[in-house]
Nucleic acid binder design. Structure first.
Lengths: 341, 341
DNA sequence: TTGTAAGCGTTATCAG
DNA sequence: CTGATAACGCTTACAA
């Protein structure tokens, strides 16, 4: 009662191993009648390909390149660490990962770096970068050469990528709103703070946040975004001014980078957990802030999951196989002090 | 520059394949000097064994058995579906999964079923059942025969299992408390409802819930548990009586089974989302209730992740390999309407 | 104590 | 269009 192999199929269908292999891998050059005969044998015997044997024979190796921003925020660091770790533990599966760091804002340098990827030496690419015309061109160029490309963390909806590994920004913003609206008991004012509001991600979050607030918490007023441009002192000044001048402020939402400065500025002004504070990305800093009750909730995504998922998708694309959708969907996670992993 | 193989090692050490295999697998019958020579070659060339090839040659297959309760709640159904699905997609990795359903409460029948598992025909076992003396004995018996056993969903801390795949019940209860306390704005009364409060899981959740409430929300009173024993009408009566008699009720926590009856009873009595309702396990029913705003949050665990993790751990144990701890940690997930997967 | 050779279940390269 | 036949990297009788 052991599992049927290609030999069994070949015998049952009265053909050779090679022919079985051809229909199994949808190669051409087989008569339709023969294809049918093999197909029939396959599902009569309940054949399933042994992937480990297949991989062994295929001798295929997967060289994947990640293009990541060189930013030195804790989130960026965690992301790079996760990619590198996923790469390490995937080496047993014949996959090797290389990472190219690119300057965060420079569209041309990024595009140039992507264009530099040699389809002879790379089997797939994951890119985390803002979508720009030069980048689109560079990606199109890679795809012409048959390279699978996935958007990583930030979506690239108009670049014809083979997939997006990350979360929906609007939904993430909506989630923050639902939580903060309740934490603020449905009334008062909300301060939204951003290191800078340039990125598409922040904008999407902001849209989702505003929409959900308007729908579910009409009693809440969301104030215009405070942008800090990385200036911690300026932020501290603004915040203390706002918080004393506007006693109705019931919640603060750190929508993008700059969480650290924000928390440092707000923490000394909080009393009995008010105003409520919600931030993005479970970095070491955010974890500490959660434990010390300086932050009430963190909306995050699992960087390990992101990295492993990108690898699985690239490999599947490379093998022209489908992926398990449910396993690859990245969750928008809500972390409180109590369910900290 | 390709990865070295046993052949390379054999050549470098001036011995045969078989000898290399012997020292690689720590088999005896090799002169110490030879062992040394091979060892030297191994780490000079940086050899790492190709596990898939090894498993292929070894013809190793993994037959894993899941012992699951036959309960017909949606959570139980989802769990069984997830196990079966994980089994399906693991068959390419030489893993075959069988499931034995056991009556939920009957310690002796469960133990008997576990004792029935034949170490000749099964390579590992995952068990979801309450911990009882007969079950402990049955597990001890399996482990004597060298079978890996993991506790699934419910921990079996005193049975000497090789691992636990699931979440910490106290932490789950704490999470519910943190959320419900805030949703209730920190004051008022909380009703805790349970289909029945027998199970260890419910007790752990309740302990965590009470502890976290007392710590963080002194202004909240948690009322004694209402047990319903599956009687929906009785529950509806109790709830409507309580809710009219006690206007201070600000939140309801469905701690275990019986969510369905609870939501049906409470929904018509809710106004403007008060009292807040939190339940466990993201079943199809809970999902609908979330969407229709009859429930405010669901504390859950990913059943697909549970099943796949159990499989990975059993396989690793069987191969005497370590597991990636971070990947196997099951998260306590908080699901709102906005971050519904 | 060591070596030889035949697999494991696929895929790939040739001829026919 | 189809079929032998040789890999892939490792394990494992069986011999020496």
């Amino acid at each position: 009662v052991s599992k049927p192999t290609v030999h069994d199929i070949a015998r049952a269908a009265g053909v050779s191993l090679a022919t079985v292999d051809r229909v199994l891998n949808a190669r051409q050059g087989v008569r339709t009648a023969t294809v049918e005969r093999v197909r029939e044998a396959v599902d009569r015997l309940g054949y399933v390909r042994d992937d480990t044997a297949a991989n062994l024979a295929r001798q295929r190796s997967y060289r994947f390149a990640f293009v990541l921003p060189d930013g030195n925020s804790q989130f960026h660091q965690a992301l790079r660490a996760a990619v590198s770790e996923a790469g390490m533990s995937a080496i047993g599966d014949r996959i090797t990962v290389t990472t190219r760091l690119v300057p965060e804002g420079d569209a041309h340098v990024i595009a140039a770096e992507v264009a530099l990827l040699d389809p002879e030496r790379v089997d797939g690419v994951a890119i985390m970068a803002p979508e720009t015309p030069p980048l689109r061109d560079a990606i199109a160029h890679l795809k012409e050469r048959g390279l699978p490309v996935v958007a990583f963390v930030s979506d690239l909806p108009n670049s014809g990528c083979d997939g997006f590994v990350g979360v929906n920004g609007r939904a993430a913003g909506r989630t923050a709103a639902a939580l903060l609206g309740r934490f603020a008991a449905g009334s008062g004012e909300i301060l939204v703070v951003a290191g800078s509001l340039q990125s598409r991600d922040s904008l999407e979050r902001r849209h989702g946040f505003d929409a959900a607030m308007a729908e579910a918490f009409p009693g809440i007023t969301v104030l215009p975004t405070v942008e800090t441009y990385g200036d911690g002192d300026r932020l501290a000044d603004i915040l203390s001014a706002q918080l004393t001048r506007r006693p109705a402020i019931a919640g603060i939402y750190s929508i993008a980078t700059g969480t650290r400065a924000l928390v440092h500025a707000v923490a000394p002004l909080r009393t009995a957990g008010r105003p409520a504070v919600i931030v993005h990305e479970l970095t070491p800093f955010a974890r500490t802030a959660l434990i010390e009750r300086q932050v009430d909730a963190v909306i995050t995504q699992d960087v390990g999951h992101l990295a492993r998922s990108a690898l699985r998708i690239l490999r599947a694309r490379r093998d022209a196989r489908p992926t398990i959708a449910a396993q690859e969907r990245i969750r928008i996670e809500i972390i409180l002090r109590e369910n900290l992993p």
